[in-house]
Design a protein around this nucleic acid. Structure first.
Lengths: 133, 133
DNA sequence: CCTCTGGTTCGACGGATGTCGAGACAGGGA
DNA sequence: TCCCTGTCTCGACATCCGTCGAACCAGAGG
């Protein structure tokens, strides 16, 4: 529980990679998220979760989509959870996963090659992104 | 040398993660790039390369920016190279690195949360059938 | 109560990864 | 020529990662 969602407060800057050098703190805060995406299974899991109808999906619908055992899928889901990319909630018998678009948007903004004025930032997110020019 | 630039032809689709499920081939092709970004040192190296003045930077300017030995920096640069994120060229005594914006843009598009319609140029005519050229 | 199903945690295994020192290679200059 | 600087390769080491089987926990019904 305590490892859920690494402190993204260190990633104050969200200017694109290609514009100015990313600070050490930002790199340290965002690299785990990229590492979590660095596995084909997790990439597909996140996609299935994020594109699910209704915004959420049950683990029972994720597991049969891969040639992997239950514990392995559960491990990958925990990695995504601890990276802050998804969130889980148990309702009755089943556990439902949903995506966290805030971090996803921040990663996309970091990799953007063109400035793309009016960045698609997390509108309902915490506080104001004052640091983002 | 033969490992330079993994076949990105498998990543035919470039629709955002959140729109539809990422195919297995796309996930397998793009996951190594995310894995390469999953290290704070490599994230800073790529940023220094991509944001360098003139579009390229010498290894001799990268190495002193970290508390790491030469071989370690060289290793990280090779990972970025083999992921197709950067390119290297030797000119005289020094080796110069430059970014490859194509793959970077594809990764950013995959993580985009909003379609960003109309952000650049006229509206896309075909609505949801956004096929990658 | 017991049992069944869904999901997670634990422990273990093989393979990959990050880091270093030592050495090799490339190019420029004395 | 020899040497010096810059960069990469090699070998080694400790650690981390992906995967599995077995066991464990949480709810829903009997």
């Amino acid at each position: 529980m305590s490892k859920q969602a690494p402190d993204l407060t260190a990633a104050l800057c969200c200017a694109p990679l290609t514009q100015r050098r990313v600070p050490t703190g930002t790199a340290a805060a965002l690299a785990p998220a990229f590492k979590a995406l660095g596995d084909p299974v997790r990439l597909q899991l996140l996609s299935m979760i994020a594109s699910a109808d209704g915004g959420e999906i049950c683990v029972c619908d994720l597991t049969p989509a891969f040639d992997l055992t239950g514990p392995t899928i559960s491990h990958h889901l925990r990695v995504l959870r601890e990276a802050g990319l998804v969130d889980a909630e148990r309702r009755g018998t089943w556990v439902w996963y949903r995506a966290r678009p805030a971090l996803l948007g921040r990663l996309a903004a970091l990799l953007t090659v063109e400035p793309v004025a009016g960045a698609a930032g997390p509108a309902p997110a915490t506080g104001t992104s004052r640091e983002c020019a």
